[in-house]
């Protein structure tokens, strides 16, 4: 089966995100009221061929641990769905 995985990689909340801060300031200079705590992460999509969802998730999790996220500074979440034909 083929699964589509969507990986979201975020800097840990305790780590300063200067890029997010700069964008937040830009939004505030647009005078959009109430905008705060903007943070920027990464969204990564990939397809995985695997016997079942658990196997697919295990593969994506390994990909995250070894490359897609840096355990020193990132957290990640994985969303999995069956890929359409």
């Amino acid at each position: 089966m083929t699964f589509k995985a969507t990986v979201t990689v975020r800097r840990r909340p305790t780590i300063l995100d200067p890029e997010g801060k700069a964008v937040e300031h830009a939004l505030q200079s647009l005078e959009l009221r109430g905008v705060a705590r903007l943070r920027i992460g990464k969204l990564i999509e990939l397809h995985v061929d695997a016997a079942d969802a658990d196997a697919a998730r295990a593969t994506v999790d390994e990909a995250c641990r070894k490359l897609l996220a840096n355990p020193v500074m990132d957290d990640y979440t994985i969303a999995l769905e069956e890929a359409g034909a």
Partner: peptide, 15 residues
Amino acid sequence: EAGLLPGALLRNASL
């Protein structure tokens, strides 16, 4: 990144 040194190098605080 290779784990030969501890820590990580983030975006400069000044951007």
